[in-house]
Design a protein around this nucleic acid. Sequence first.
DNA 1: GTGAAAGCGCTAACAT
DNA 2: ATGTTAGCGCTTTCAC
Lengths: 333, 333
Amino acid sequence: MEITIKDIAADAKVSVSTVSRVMNGSKAVSDELRHRVMRSIEKYHYIPNAEARSLVTKNTHLVAVLEADLRNPITAIHLKQISDVCMKHNKVVIACDYDFDNKKALVLMDRMLERNIDGLIFQGVHLTDEILKKLHEFPCPVVLGNQGLSGDDCEFTTVTVDSYGVARDITEFLVGDGHRRIAYVGGNAEDYTNGQLRLKGYRDAMKAAGLEIPDSYIYQGNFSTEAGVEGMKKIYENSRDLPTAVITGSDIIAIGVIRYLKSLNIRVPEDISVFGVDDSVSDIFDPPLSTVRMFQQGEMFYEALFGEHADEKKIIHFPYQLVRRNSTRKLWQ
Amino acid sequence: MEITIKDIAADAKVSVSTVSRVMNGSKAVSDELRHRVMRSIEKYHYIPNAEARSLVTKNTHLVAVLEADLRNPITAIHLKQISDVCMKHNKVVIACDYDFDNKKALVLMDRMLERNIDGLIFQGVHLTDEILKKLHEFPCPVVLGNQGLSGDDCEFTTVTVDSYGVARDITEFLVGDGHRRIAYVGGNAEDYTNGQLRLKGYRDAMKAAGLEIPDSYIYQGNFSTEAGVEGMKKIYENSRDLPTAVITGSDIIAIGVIRYLKSLNIRVPEDISVFGVDDSVSDIFDPPLSTVRMFQQGEMFYEALFGEHADEKKIIHFPYQLVRRNSTRKLWQ
DNA sequence: GTGAAAGCGCTAACAT
DNA sequence: ATGTTAGCGCTTTCAC
């Protein structure tokens, strides 16, 4: 039988409320009793029961993170960071993988609803009305990651990449390196944040630089290596002039792009430069990817959930920084 | 105010126990009442409170997974699989990252102890006495992953790679491909399962094939890309004859080995073949790694925790299979 | 400063 | 078959 607060109270010859006060660090306990209680607690290795506690406090210290795919390197990075901050705040992360399947996500959410979680982070790839509706059922703070909503109504706070800024900055970076024919292999066209905003950033920057974009230079698929391969293939086959640089939606896509190029014996970065986003595979992939590194992802999610202004719904962007590695080169050198 | 079992009972004009029976699918309820209850449940979107429930059933449906590093690709694979099986069994996974820091792991375990989890999976990299002691405090099933204990005493069931078999099979595979100078870049020497057993498998297979192993052909570091680089460097610098093939402890190490080789313009697999383990980066890395693929990891962990014979402590190995890709080649072709 | 007691939402005897 | 009731282990008024 596990030992309970009663046992401690009995052993320390105090009431259970006193034990409770000691555990919760309430001031109103004499040193005398506090010590007796502490001794009993240590003596029995007493550990309070979290369920019983949360039953009355309505506070489970549980944060649920729903991911489309835990194996995605950037997902793993987020999860680790979120887990870290939560740890610091005495919370614990429930990690769920819905495998890109919204039906599964719905089931998972019901499961989370039972658990009275303190907060929910939903990393969506396709925010349907059904998903949104379910999200609204949560009595706790809910934060969206990855994909934001399109409107300005901001039903939920969203913590994500500054897609527009990132695409614009990458484009400017490549233009600065002397590139003029720059193609784009990005995420889903229906995805507002990662698709449309990204494309706009690229388009605007190209326009600002006075550069044309042939139709064949734009490919929108999903966030996978296969999509990268497919995208580069399409661009290769349909373009009169090959681009000298390719912007991608993520490192994973960039890898696909590079793979296709390699299969054609086109060298990266000598012949074509490829730029990633996420800095998620820097220690694995060769050549080291020029990419965009994000910062403080864990903290930003946590703040969005539980911070002072968590009630104001808004869009929050990770701080980011372009990092030059060896998948891009300067044309004028 | 959240709605509770009482509200449902009141609305359906039955007792709370009837509501409870309906929810738990107990047969002993008339269709009449069952329907009334169901209707009320749907009407109010009632969701039972998991904490209250587990307070009495002593069953949280929570499985904790403690990982050294969530970002490791093989870790992510395991986590996803475990999450999947648990899902199927109506359980939920708490994912924790202790960042290779046993002190952190200890703190995490205390946290889990509070929560009355149903089961614990500890993916250890260095099983100290302190860790083991804490593990013994859990009243629930505990399963070790990754690193097993050295003795046959089997304090805890361990679910892991068949290190000996894998190393032996890889060696035989390479010998079969005509390699005779085969080097080894593996995990920590102190690590029984992943270090010693692995090395033995390699040694035994080499001996069986009548092949010598120069001292310089063996490097034992940790499971990182850096260790792979360092290991290959050492082998390169200290060997009279370069090996024609290198066995590694994991894909991550293999990547390091290949990186070093590349930096010297030594081609893989033309000049040197490199064999990985885990099949964790197949969709990311070029060249595609010849490696060892594991199966049913999630199921095996789950079985070990909650299966019929979960009480018998033992070592369980994942089924595995060597997969030939393009980081190795046949010498006699 | 300390203790008694109510109650969090649920399940599981135990009655009926 | 259904209802009554006693807890599960804890926190939190409310007295003293």
